[in-house]
Design a protein around this nucleic acid. Sequence first.
DNA 1: TTGTACGCGTTATCAG
DNA 2: CTGATAACGCGTACAA
Lengths: 352, 352
Amino acid sequence: MTVRNDAEPTQQRRMSAVPTIHDVAAHAGVSPMTVSRVLAGGTSVRPAKMERVLAAVAELGYRKNENARSLRPGQRTGLIGVIITNVSNPYYAELQLGVEEVLSAENIRLLVGNSGEDPARERQLVADFIGRHVDGLIVVPTGGDTSHLSERSLGSIPLVLASRELEGIEADTVVIDDVKGAFEGTSQLISEGHTRIAYLGNMVSVFTSKRRYDGFEKAHKDAGIEVVPELVRAGQRDPATAQDAMEELLQLPDPPTAVFSANNRNTIGVLRALRSNALSFAQPGETAPRSDIRVVGFDNFELSDMMPFLLNVIEHDARELGRQAGKLLVRRLRENNNDAPRKVQLPTHLRI
Amino acid sequence: MTVRNDAEPTQQRRMSAVPTIHDVAAHAGVSPMTVSRVLAGGTSVRPAKMERVLAAVAELGYRKNENARSLRPGQRTGLIGVIITNVSNPYYAELQLGVEEVLSAENIRLLVGNSGEDPARERQLVADFIGRHVDGLIVVPTGGDTSHLSERSLGSIPLVLASRELEGIEADTVVIDDVKGAFEGTSQLISEGHTRIAYLGNMVSVFTSKRRYDGFEKAHKDAGIEVVPELVRAGQRDPATAQDAMEELLQLPDPPTAVFSANNRNTIGVLRALRSNALSFAQPGETAPRSDIRVVGFDNFELSDMMPFLLNVIEHDARELGRQAGKLLVRRLRENNNDAPRKVQLPTHLRI
DNA sequence: TTGTACGCGTTATCAG
DNA sequence: CTGATAACGCGTACAA
């Protein structure tokens, strides 16, 4: 017989701590095993006992200890780790929402961490999540050293890369069609007659930035013109630095006539720079600042349609990206197979 | 002696599954207990063995199983549950970031769930998080039935309410000074001579909405004027419905001359309505739409300063709110005490 | 300094 | 249909 603590331990515990399956069993006058069976679906349990057990569960407010359950071999934790570079970027918040939407339907919970674009932090989060025995990982990778995401390091934990691919890492991946999107956006500018088009974006070491720059370049090439090196500014990660970069461009002897911005952070910086260079901002009864500089920006963002400048955005669906990432992971978990990694590429749309 | 599975089980396991403390011990030629000691800080372990253990840990990529560890009595999971009404609202994304900032410094991980303002979903998430034995909860409560957040139901799990209080629930709480913020914003409009001021906000059953409406009302009373009932629209939860509500107001025989919007979702709807009622939107070289309707909105939002209408926002710091919530929880966790619940109220600032 | 025994809460297995 | 047993990975208590 299993002795618990001392005298009347069950009584004592029930007062303060979380009730266990033993408490429920005692309360219902059955064995823990019967309780377990009832909670697992109630197959082959006498209806009378079943009711008693359910009553005890309700009365005690019993909840299965998921951590203990997952300890048993072959059992999952029902937990997946989600590592995002920056939730304060609404784009990634949407992505998180998409992931949650799909996974919560599977009764899987999200362990969420912010890497802040710091590879060391990402590595730390991965290590921690592994220690918590997550069933899978969804990562927006920062790039750089990727050894912590290698198959050797992850073992059998399935990984889905979201938004960015990683060289040398074979994993299910969801990306958007960055190259095509950037190509279309840039081509639009060129078709309007622009030849001195500025580029603003993140460091080219970032997967998406590289691809978007490639599309920018390809549009030039296809049109038979060349990218103007002095108009290329890569490395801005937030609106403030993007604004600075744009201000600089505006000071050039021969400034750009159009701007291609590779992400919403940069686009916002660009717009702020344009505004601060106009004489005044639209106030009731005043004239809007003029800007003869055409702007096309990658990523849609809330209120992009309310900007006081003409702006075309290359939109794509962050929530859908999150959903797809979730679906890929769920599929992996269900099939538990060794199929080749799947790549999903989502379309973009130039909103005119 | 502890028999594992069959013949050479350790060998087999090391190939595929996650290594356990036994595998490390075998690899280093010590007992599991020594490994545990080394990982716990390495007190009273011979340096030579310690090194062997650390080497084995590194080689096998061993990570402590946190779930198993937390099973022992008195041990924490290092997990806290965060329930947010809607991460796609950038305000709450910031809040999440603030929470994470504080808790990751304590090496605590976040289990994140979206309630979507659905009390049933919130209840389900709480139940699940309790089953995972979170050390604490941070909740932006939806309101309605709150029994799942009662002390009786939560037992000894500390709870922090963020952004909204809950009647009948005694818990640490962080809110912003909604009443004062709304009062100042409304007073500003009144001081400019407006007397027919519209109110747009969420249902008054939501804590913050109620408080903001109170501030709106108080400003009227203090100025000796009355709220105009036909200009009050409560119940809009997203920009689209807010836009509809505002369009209606604009159709009134005697429309409002100013608008007080109680949150950023409504403010955006208001601005869209104003724009769609103007003849044209600012394009390069065009005139900005005129709007003689003054707008003051609760909550700041990205690009609020770039709107093509005059707009004053009542700003407050969502990330700081998240940080404070995190700090309150950490304090509770550390002190493990029964102090009376603490209330933190953060200031607002009317940006002119 | 090091190792053994045991129990945390759960469930698969097998006996009844 | 039901219950006793054992084991999951770890760490406390105690023994050596």
